[in-house]
Every structure is written in structure tokens, then in C-alpha cells.
Amino acid sequence: MNPLTADAVMVVHGPEVFDAGDVEWLIRLLSPREVLVAGVMARTAARESGLPVTCTDERPSVLLNALSGRAFLVNRGKTPDSGRIFGEIIAGRLGSGRGLVHVESSSRTVYSWNRADDALAQEIAEMTGFTLASATSTGTPRDGTREIRGCIPGEAVFVNGIVIGTATDETVVLSSRNGTIRPVSGLEVKPHGFEKLLRRGLPDLRAAWCKSGMIRSAPPRPGKVRVSRAGRVAVIDHCGHTLYQEIEDEEVCGVLAIGDDTTAVCGHICSHAGIPVFGVVDGDGDGIVEPGFAPGSVVVEVTYGRDDDLGREVAATRDLEASYWDEWVEETLRSLEGRVRVVVDRREG
């Protein structure tokens, strides 16, 4: 008789499960019917791995809610506690009466949240040798308030892909009142981060993507090298998590990234795809990802002012339909002469 896992969908979250080899091992061991990948950096790690998976733009809870048959979530938290917290959050977002089978690699535990498919959970625990544990989620937070738990003091805190400050406690509490967001506790604020977040509109804290720490700890794996070519220059302004929506376009020949963290994320993701990046930074990066840039990439640091202003000026004044990427970079550097200094240069020669 086939194991239950052979008829189940494995939903994978985060890059660490790929980087640590968990996904490859679980595919070989459990033979799931399908593997769906959730998350931007997970997609990057998945593509680098070459494993037979399907990448999506959806969050784990959205994927799991949309599946009608057997399914389970695989995650590797930065700590066992943060991994458990993540599972609790996802379980609390599933539809009424739906449980969650959650394989947490960091603690070698299979959680059965909210009376999940216990038969599937037990089978996975037996096949992997992981501990089986029953758990109950506490439900959704009260209106207007969001707790970001499992933080390590000193690490960056994100809301919808933008760093809003540094954690000072294991739990960061945010409040949404009177058309703005304010920190309640556990956060050393980065004012520019809040400014960038609110510039895009007031987010719904209950549904917002919130996390802390590095978005990927492993460096990018080198991939293919593209020759300089004509095409469109995609502009990514302080929201690197939207990058895949742009670079899936075959017409894109390079990326203009605005902001330190955005440049780091774009460089990391694009390096495996061989897509060069022109980054505009001002030196206030938070070290959220290991850097890496494809050949042809250039990063400039503004000598005065903010990267926001100069980056948007470049986006507004330079022709974003490039005859050749290398020529576009040369012309852009000439237009910025005396206002920036080159800090990364991956051009040949």
C-alpha cells in the first residue's frame, strides 16, 4: 500500500530548507505528489537547487487553504522556537476546521496543529524519525495590533519587505491607529524605514508579511552568465520582494535597484539568473542577505543626500529601454559624475 505522503502536497517555506538539504531528503524519503514553494528567497534557493518543485507567488497559508486534499508544511526556522511560532501563525490563518501538519526541521518535530490529519502526521514522523507533537494555535491577534515573535535582539525587523528597525526583545509589538503604525515595544525604530513603508500606504498588520533576521543566510550560488544585450531596465524601489514579478519578463536586460537592502536582495536573486544590477545606495544597509552580483553589475553610493532621491532621479531621467546594458551603465555613471562613488564593479576590464 502506498504511503499517505505519496498522495500529499508538500508546501515548502523559506530558503533554509533548501540550503540545509531538507527538501531534497524529504522528496526522496516521502515521495510527495507535488512540491509547492512559497516565498521569494525560497524560490531563489529552489532554482539554485534544481529540484523538481513548483514555485509560486503565494504565502504558505494561501497555498494550504487552496488545497483540497492532503498537504503538509515544511519549514526550518532560525531557531526551534521561531519555527514553532511560524507554524502556529500559519495554522491560525487556515480556514475554520482545518488543521496543519507542520514538519519543522530545526527541531526535528512534526507538529499536528489544531487536530490536523493525525494519520499523515504520524506517518511522516515515523518515516523521518522526527518527534510527533500535538499543538493548538492561539488564533488571530486583536485588531490593530501585531506581535512579531521569535526575534533575536539586534536583528532587523521587516514589515512587507521593508526594514523598520532593530529588535530589542524577543517580541516586537506594533500598533495601527489613526492612519499610521507605531512601535509599542521591542523595537529600535528606523525612521526612514517607517517612512518608506507608509509611503506605499497603510498596511493591514493582521495580513502583513512580518519577520526578523536575515532573509537568507547562505550566499547565492553562481549561475549562468548573460552577455550584455538590449532590453528593458526594471526598477525596484525599496521592495526587493517584488523582484520576481519583473525579472520573469524575458525583455529585462538589467535591474535598477534603489536602496541598500533592495540592492543586496536584487543582487542576490539576480546573480544566479545572470541578470546584472545597477544599485544606488547610501550606506544604511542592515545586512539582511549575503551579497552577490552577476557580471556587469555596478553599485554606487551617493556622496551626499539619500539613495531614494538619486535613485528616483535616475529612474525618471534615464531611458529605461537600453540599447545595451553596458552602454546604459556607462551613460548613467557619466550622468552621476561627482555625485556618487562606485563601491561594487563587476564589469569586465
Rank of each mutant, 00 (worst) to 15 (best):
1 M>S: 15
2 N>E: 14
13 H>M: 12
23 V>W: 03
24 E>P: 00
26 L>V: 03
30 L>V: 08
30 L>D: 04
35 V>F: 06
36 L>D: 02
41 M>H: 11
43 R>H: 05
45 A>N: 11
46 A>Y: 05
50 G>F: 11
52 P>V: 15
53 V>Q: 02
55 C>E: 14
55 C>T: 15
58 E>H: 12
63 L>R: 01
63 L>Y: 04
65 N>M: 08
74 V>N: 00
75 N>V: 15
80 P>A: 13
81 D>W: 10
84 R>T: 09
87 G>D: 07
88 E>V: 04
88 E>S: 15
90 I>F: 05
93 R>G: 07
96 S>I: 06
101 V>D: 05
103 V>C: 07
105 S>E: 11
108 R>W: 01
108 R>E: 13
109 T>F: 03
109 T>I: 14
110 V>I: 13
111 Y>C: 06
114 N>D: 15
115 R>G: 07
116 A>L: 06
117 D>G: 08
125 A>Y: 01
132 L>K: 01
134 S>V: 03
137 S>Q: 03
137 S>A: 15
137 S>L: 10
140 T>H: 09
144 G>D: 13
146 R>D: 13
148 I>C: 05
154 G>N: 05
157 V>C: 14
158 F>P: 00
161 G>D: 09
162 I>E: 02
162 I>Y: 00
165 G>W: 05
171 T>K: 04
186 G>N: 03
190 K>V: 10
199 R>T: 08
206 R>N: 12
211 K>D: 13
212 S>L: 10
217 S>V: 12
219 P>T: 09
221 R>F: 09
225 V>H: 00
225 V>T: 14
231 G>V: 00
231 G>H: 02
231 G>Q: 03
241 H>K: 04
242 T>A: 14
248 E>S: 08
249 D>W: 02
250 E>N: 06
251 E>V: 10
253 C>Q: 00
254 G>R: 02
257 A>F: 05
258 I>S: 03
260 D>L: 13
260 D>M: 14
261 D>H: 07
265 V>W: 02
267 G>D: 06
268 H>K: 09
268 H>A: 13
269 I>P: 01
272 H>D: 09
286 D>L: 07
300 V>F: 10
300 V>I: 13
308 D>Y: 09
309 D>I: 15
313 E>P: 00
320 L>H: 06
326 D>T: 11
341 R>S: 10
345 D>Q: 06
348 E>S: 14
